[in-house]
Write a protein that binds this DNA or RNA. Structure first.
Length: 258
DNA sequence: ATGGTGGCCTTGCCA
């Protein structure tokens, strides 16, 4: 099975490129973030023509997450089932696809260390861990895919110096991310490239960051142990960041022996 | 190509 995550930064703006990419790369499951579409505005028909079912949790101008699948979509859940108040933002959607419990997640950006939105980000990652604790076992086949807006190590940003004091690299964010991993998930991409640095999934539109290789590795395919052991390929498609009207994120792809 | 934000509910906010 081929599983992909891609923050598309507006599915309306990106639809032609996403459809073209899906036809070429033929994923079984694609998790999309930042659709920026209202709940009912997801272009299901366009994906249905390519053989995919889809589910969407959207709010309009911001955020919005979706899953498209060729291997079924069962038991969808939008947001968290952790007993807490509903998340005001559309940031996570869950479904069972081909026997795997899959989540498409868009973790809050945080804006600035100490900002209300930063507190929300830390809380949000805590709720993700709580949802896993209360709804799943690490012995199941679980995949959390998405834009985590956290760089786990200094080598996951182009310059640790440039990020000093910034969000995405602060210790509280890294700790909250690690708490999610510690539930029983592995970073499948890092498993494949344990010694490499300079591998990124996001490049800011500003200042020609992509051309300068000023990137960040903030998108992940996290897999429970049983699945992580079956991951045969993991890669970032940097070509999708090139050309006309790219997203600022590249798709991250993983193949599993299933 | 020797240089280069982009998306949105747009004249500001968000990433």
């Amino acid at each position: 099975m081929r599983i992909v995550t891609w923050n598309v930064n507006s599915l309306k703006a990106r639809l032609p490129r996403v459809l073209d990419w899906v036809e070429t790369m033929d994923p079984d499951v694609l998790c999309i973030q930042e659709t920026k579409l209202a709940e009912d505005a997801f272009p299901s028909d366009s994906f249905a023509k390519l053989g995919y079912e889809s589910i969407h949790h959207g709010q309009g101008q911001w955020n919005g997450v979706a899953i498209i699948s060729k291997v079924g979509i069962d038991d969808p859940v939008s947001g968290f089932s952790d007993g807490g108040a509903p998340d005001p933002d559309a940031r996570i959607i869950w479904a069972t696809c081909g026997g795997l419990r899959v989540a498409s997640a868009y973790i809050p950006n945080g804006r600035e260390v100490g900002h209300d939105h930063y507190i929300y980000k830390l809380d949000w990652l805590g709720r993700l861990r709580s949802h896993l604790d209360e709804n799943h076992s690490p012995k199941e086949d679980v995949l959390i895919l998405g834009d985590f807006n956290v760089a786990p190590e200094d080598r996951d940003v182009w310059s640790a110096k440039a990020f000093k004091g910034a969000t995405h690299v602060s210790q509280p964010e890294r700790n909250a991310y690690q708490e999610v991993l510690d539930w029983g998930l592995q970073d499948t991409f890092r498993n494949h490239y344990p010694e490499e640095d300079g591998l990124y999934t996001f490049w800011d539109y500003r200042q020609g960051s992509f051309y300068k290789r000023y990137g960040m590795r903030i998108d992940f395919i996290l897999a429970s142990k049983s699945l992580a052991n079956q991951c045969t390929l993991a890669l970032v498609d940097r070509n999708a960041r090139k050309g006309e009207k790219p997203s600022d994120h590249a798709p991250l792809l993983a193949d599993f022996q299933r």
